[in-house]
Every structure is written in C-alpha cells, then in structure tokens.
Nucleic acid binder design. Structure first.
Lengths: 244, 244
DNA sequence: CCACTTTATCGTCAATTTGACGAGAATCGT
DNA sequence: ACGATTCTCGTCAAATTGACGATAAAGTGG
C-alpha cells in the first residue's frame, strides 16, 4: 500500500435483483434468460451494471426493477440483500454486484415488461434444486434471499407486501405458510395478526367468494415491526444444536 | 444501454469496518484519524480500497481488521453491514464502499496495532452526537451499525462476542444493558440465558472478586440463534405507531 | 468473629402469551 | 333446506414473562 506506483483497482459494479412473489402456492423468483456471454441462454437474476458513474446504487436497483418488471418501484419493498464480490465470479473482469431484495404482490401486471428479455417466475424450490443451472453465483444469492425473506416476515409486517392492496387474513396466512412451508392454525393466526396494533386496517368491506363465509378485507397499516414477533414453529427438536 | 459505445463504468471499491466493543460501560467504535485528503485529520472508520483486483471482499475486510487492530480475525464475528455508494460521497472519484460489522471483546490487545495511524475507541454516543464531525457518510454508517447490533443480539447469541473467552452471566447482562441502554432484571435474565440450550457452557470454575458472591464462569456454546429471542423491553407505548 | 454490604442464584406467583381445539356465523351448490 | 366450506370468536391448559422475595457466598470494617 505504500508503493507509490500502486493504483486503486478499478472494478465494474453491478446491481442484481432478487424479486420474490407468492404465486400459485409457492414462493417464486423472477429470472431472465441471459442474452450475452458468459452464460448465454442460462437463467439469471435480472440486473446490470451501473449506467454511469453518477448513478446511485438504489437508483440503479429501481431502474433495473422497472426495466425488468414494468413495476413502479414506489411503494414496493426494496432493500439491500448482500454484496457479492468473489474475484472469479465473472470470467470477463472483476465484478462486484450489490444485490437487492424486492417483494412484489402476486400477479403483478405483464411480467415480461419493458425489456425484451424473457422474464419468468420460477419457484424458488426449482431454482434451488441441485439439478438447476444458473448463471454466476446466482443460486447462492437466491438461497440467501429466501432465507432473508423467511426471517424478515418473523419480525416485520413485510408479509403483507406479497399481498395486493386489499387482502384477507387468510391471504396473509397463506403467505406465511408458503414462505415458511409450514401449516399455521387459522384461528391462532387470526388472533395474533389482528391483535398487533397498526398492522391491519379494516376496510369495512368483505370478499365475495364461492363457498365459505366472506372474509373481512384489510389494508396494510403503518406498523412496520411486529412486536412481539411471529415466531416460526420450533424445529422438531431432533436434539442437536442449532448451528448457524 | 444499447449504445455500442457505452462502456462499463469503472469504480473504486473500498471496504470499511465498523468495529464495535463494549468498554467502560459504553458501546464503543474504533475510529482512526485520516492521514490524507479528503477529510485529512478527521476521524473516520478504518478501511481502504481493495489491494488488488484479485482480493475478495471478505479477505479485504479481514486484512483491514488485522492491519488496524492487530486482531486475529479467526474467531471474531465479521459480517457485511451494508454497501454505501452515493455518487458524491467521495469528492475524488466514484467510490462504492462495502461496510463490515465486527464485534470484538472489550480490551483487545494494544489497540493502535500494526498500522501507524492512531486508532481509538470512541463511544458510539459521542460519535453520533450532532456536534461530532466525521469523514464521508461515516456517521450514518455508525448509526446503521449500532442499530444492527441492537437487533442482532435479540435473536442471536452474538452478545457473547463482546465478552472474553470466559465470562459470567452478569458480564453478558451488562453487554445487553449497555447496547440497549436499558436495565434488565438480573434474576429473569439469568433464568432466560441459562435456559437456552447450547448458549452457555459452564466451565465449573468461578470468579474471584472483591465483594459479592463469586459467579460461575461460562464459555460460548455452539448455539448461534436465540429461540425464542430475547426481546427488548417494549417501548413505554406512548400509543403512537411503530413506524420503524 | 460478627454484623453489614455486595453480588449471584434460586424460587414464587400473578399476568400474559401461546397452542390446541370447539363451535357458531355466513356463504355456496344442490 | 342441507351439507360443505371458510371465517371468526371463544375456551382452556401449558408455557413464558415480569416483578420481586429470599438465600448463598463472598468481602469489609469494627
């Protein structure tokens, strides 16, 4: 470092998106097919390099989200997940990618939005399956995204971000059940979420449905933290230590 | 983006460290005095650019930690905090900095370690005080680091990372009290932490102290998650919404 | 050696929260 | 009208938490 000839390494900075939704009884992630080398034709997370040296990371993430999904980032949940920068993750040059995590409601408008590349929802179980090939280290990123999501809905109200603007308690419970892959008792769940102040705001209206009593509709309230948290059912307790 | 003359922006990637410890009844952060422009003479987080295009982010963080503190990163807790990349955060050129959060036990060896720059522990309250001037956006980073630390010890066993290899239940409780700035009941705290499996492993030995009954000494067990979590005492509940 | 102080640890008990269910309410299809 | 379905409220025992009494084991100063 005290060598006068040492120069700051110049590195390409990219932004990748892990866009998750709950759809068709599974947690799904948006993947695109790569149109260029490397990994041409392989599925990958949407993303790209900063458009200029003046673009902020958050702005780049929002831009990519709009380009790939056609969604308006306003009101969507978008947070940094992690930054990945292994020296060999891209064979062309050194790339550091800042990955963002986004939660969008099921069935967002036309999925294959503005950009020409074919975007698709893929169940995370499929994406994480050992047989699935993904570009770069994207499989690891997806694993991190799913784990972050699972714990995030424990102590925040973000599960509601997977629902539309109006939703029922059952809609919300299904989000938890699908993300955690656990059955929850409808009655206890109802008591819990309706008891958290400022989480759910009743609209007064009800669903029209086929079969079954109509459910009350709610909107998201201003609460962002669940206090106390909604804990995942404890692991079967095989006895071993909970490492990790 | 479809302009053939467009080039990938080359950006300088840095790694900064938020090294926290519990010392003298306060949560303190390691700061160094900058030896070069910009912000010459101002206190800043330790950190620096990647040493080469082949250095991984984690390796750079560990290298900086060793250079600045003389600590062996093996066994220390080091995790990514966030990546900061506002276009104007460094007047020289575009810099994206990946910030890491480290927890070290109180009174680590000689603090001003290998590197010549004067490193010092500064209470986070002082660092965050409105009157304090820090380099770049480091005040915001410290705020994020403190908040992450506060919530991290709720649901992980990481509070023990602030203690030495052997510690008492009271040592651990003081960590919680100092980080949260809340008094905790010694009896309930004792019951809680000794009841979590694989959190504390009794060594069988006891402290020799001046005044008061000797306390049993423990080491960290293999558990990494607190299940159920140790919740901060609920805010006095002024009634308002918890807008995070 | 004996109060007296200090700190650690164990125990108790009521209040709260959770988990497991029963049962009624409200709708649809037949 | 009847059964199937789904939402919602209620009950009750078990587990957890919060508040606090009491004892144990040290040091200190007479």
């Amino acid at each position: 470092m005290n060598d006068d000839t040492w120069k700051v390494p110049e590195i390409a900075v990219a932004v990748d998106l892990a866009v998750l939704t709950v759809l068709a009884d599974s947690l799904q992630i948006m993947l695109v097919e790569r149109g260029i080398e490397p990994y041409l034709g392989t599925q990958a997370l949407p993303g790209g390099f900063l458009s200029s040296v003046d673009e902020s990371l958050d702005a780049a993430a929002e831009r990519e989200l709009t380009e790939e999904t056609g969604l308006d980032p306003v009101g969507l949940h978008l947070e940094q997940l992690h930054t990945y920068g292994a020296p060999d993750r891209d064979p062309r040059q050194r790339v550091v990618t800042v990955c963002y995590l986004a939660f969008v409601p099921g069935l967002p408008p036309p999925v294959a939005g503005g950009d020409a590349r074919s975007a698709a929802w893929v169940p995370t179980k499929t994406a994480l399956h050992p047989g699935t090939e993904l570009a770069f280290d994207h499989k690891k990123i997806i694993g991190d995204a799913v784990e972050r999501t699972r714990s995030k809905i424990e102590y925040t109200t973000l599960a509601a971000a997977f629902c539309g603007p109006e939703f029922t308690v059952t809609d919300l419970r299904r989000v938890y059940e699908i993300v955690w892959d656990e059955k929850l008792d409808p009655r206890n769940f109802h008591r819990k979420v309706t008891g958290v102040e400022n989480f759910l705001v009743a609209t007064g209206t009800q669903t029209t449905r086929q079969g079954g009593r109509p459910a009350a509709l709610y909107r998201r309230g201003p609460a962002r933290l669940l206090h106390p948290p909604m804990l995942r059912p404890a692991a079967p307790k095989p006895d071993a230590s909970q490492t990790s």
